[in-house]
């Protein structure tokens, strides 16, 4: 289980928003997709994911709906709201600048 502090502050939210933006997903699917897409580098457990999802919902950035999953389990699907889309755009833009800069610095010879 990875703790939220393993990720940079705020990046967890950004990752969740990004995944949810692609298509509505439930908690396990989100964790799975992050692991998949980061080629097993980023792993998040429910201990971090679940509070983050609820906080985003509380702040109106995503909303949830109950549905039955592919393998016939009832699950809570999260999807992006309009405010969430805007936040995603802003956050990704805000991430790009420093992260590119840091990469430049640390990859310099």
């Amino acid at each position: 289980m990875s703790k939220p502090t393993d990720l940079l502050q705020g990046t967890l939210d950004l990752l969740i928003l990004k995944i949810v933006a692609l298509e509505p997903a439930h908690g396990w699917a989100i964790a799975h997709r992050v692991r998949q897409m980061s080629r097993d580098v980023l792993q998040m457990g429910q201990g971090a994911l679940c509070p983050a999802l609820h906080k985003l919902e509380q702040n109106g950035l995503n909303r949830s709906q109950r549905a039955v999953s592919n393998n016939n389990r009832r699950a809570k699907y999260y999807m992006l709201t309009k405010a969430g889309q805007k936040a995603l755009a802003e956050e990704s833009a805000a991430w790009d600048g420093p992260s590119a800069a840091i990469t430049t610095v640390i990859t310099a010879v």
């Binding site: 908690g27 396990w28 699917a29 679940c50 389990r73 699950a75």
Partner: peptide, 13 residues
């Protein structure tokens, strides 16, 4: 319920 279904999904995997 949400947590339970999450655990079940992990277990399925």
């Amino acid at each position: 319920e949400e947590l339970r279904s999450y655990i079940e999904m992990v277990a399925d995997e």
